[in-house]
Amino acid sequence: MTTQPHENTLEIRQLNATLPNGMRLLRDVSLTLEPGEVRALVGESGAGKSMIGRAVLGILPSAVVHSSGDILLEGQSLNAMRPKTRRSIVAKMSALIPQDPLTALNPVRKIGPQITDPLVRIHRWSRDRALKRALELLERVHIRNPERVMNSYPHELSGGMRQRILIAAAFAPSPRLIVADEPTTALDVTVQKQILKLIRELQRETGTAVLFVTHDMGVVAKISQKVTVLFAGRVLEDAPTEAIFNDAAHLYTRGLIAATPTPNATAEPFRPVPQDLIAQLQRDTQAEDVRFYQGGRK
């Protein structure tokens, strides 16, 4: 099988997800991710950011009954695959850096096998090779005593350490795509910066495409080349990061940027996204109104 050099690493086409009660979690979401690109996925809590990541990784909650649209990994349609094939393709090509490093590791299993299991299972590496790779990555994420850490249980390590381990685990199989779902939200501020720096470094070294979920426009500016703004499961805006910050098309996006505290924000008062704008967007969403787009435009 040959892959075109310009093929997208990830392509989401018209993705829909609905709950049994008819509530729509994702509405015709489309986005693409080129090789080596970082795309930020922003939007308020409940907008469906995590749902998109879950859909890509094949771990949608069982309550989500209907899901139409398609997801393509390097041009391969996941919908067309049998579940078993899909699982192994997804496992081979993608990884997750989760939000909560406390619960993402199995509390009763040692760290070592939790990193090496996928390498052995999916990539069919030997135990030795997997072990070597895990140690190498742990060193890369600045873990001082990798052998000892591999033999520890998660609860023996700090939150920052655990998140480093999860980053190492995500990069270990050299995936094409990493979904980072608010990887710094559960950590304290000083650790947040280190973790973010680490992800950015590793991303640049390996050229992995990253779908980076966050609320923080400051983080968006630092890490991403493209931005997708999501509201109530619908894409409001999709643009290069620079364009978003210099000249956002949508009032809501401008509101998000204005609401982000900046280093010199002490001068000006904090301005949240205007309530009437949010109310308007919610009404339009409820009514499935096409003015949803136009209404919010500048």
């Binding site: 990784l57 094949g58 771990i59 699982r87 192994s88 997804v90 496992a91 081979k92 993608s94 990884a95 997750l96 989760p98 909560d100 619960t103 993402a104 590791l105 199995n106 509390p107 009763v108 299993r109 939790q114 299991d117 996928p118 299972r121 999916i122």
Partner: peptide
Amino acid sequence: DYVDSARIGGARRFTTLVSEILP
């Protein structure tokens, strides 16, 4: 979440049940 992690790592459902949840 660790169950999701295992599934993303390619573990089959039965494997997940026996080696992640059972312990």
